[in-house]
Amino acid sequence: MSAYAPGTRAAQLGLKIRQKKTTRSSTLIGIGAWIVGLVFVFPVLWMVLTSFHREADAATNPPSFAAPLVLDGYRAFFDSNPWPSLLNSLTASVVSTILVILLAFPAAYALSIRPVKKWSDVLFFFLSTKFMPIVAGLLPLYLFAQKVQLLDNIWMLIAFYTTMNLPIAVWMLRSFLAEVPVEMLEAAEVDGAGLIRSLREVIAPVVMPGLAAAALICFIFSWNELLFARVLTGTVAQTAPVFLTGFVTSQGLFLAKVCAASLVVSLPVLLAGFAAQDKLVQGLSMGAVR
């Protein structure tokens, strides 16, 4: 017994040292993490600060951190009539997201709960369209839009964004639907629920987190898209990212104005992303990572 005690004490001592070591290293880790986080967020903070500066203060070297804060940049942005393009972006993103969910939800059902034959081939067909550079379809879609007079029409963009995001939503929702207990469905069917009713009343409430994650990611991708919006739209259906690219043409100082504009355009994505950080991971990994 007595021979055992020193060993225990040594072990306790060792544990104490290790604990001390871990508290110190965890302080270091905390400091390190804060530094890394600040470095990454710094450009955004700088953008925010610059957007509230006068143009003359925004373009100084060395930078004037403590210059007075004004709303000139935002005023200049909103005076340049950004509302039509913001509204177009909103329409294109929201409508295409709704369409994606409406199409992908039943499709995911047919690929998981009541699967069609060769369902895994279909699933991989969807994924393969995501691997293809969308730029390869740019010209044909442009020519088609030109032919049927859909150039500069928001519906052309909505149709394209729906296709662009459908595979992501199908994959995500499938992984969520696979978890719905079959008994629940069978019970609903015994009660005489048809496909649409069981999708809406039985499955949807269970997979709500998945639906939300899919919707969030589809919204973000449509809102951000530039290349097709630029080629397929003109003055009428122009979206916010296209509007932004045309914003820096004027001579003279424009830094505060551009920062304000960039922030306003990014705001919906920032807010949606902050509000649903966990959904972001699920959406980005197409449901593979929860």
């Binding site: 990212p241 830094l255 551009v258 990014s266 920032l270």
Partner: peptide, 23 residues
């Protein structure tokens, strides 16, 4: 810190590119 780290990803790509180029 996690939220700060995520922020760059949530800036619209064109806006981010403009920020880097000009600011």
């Amino acid at each position: 810190v996690r939220t700060m780290m995520i922020t760059p990803f949530l800036v619209v790509p064109v806006a981010a590119a403009l920020l880097w180029k000009h600011a």
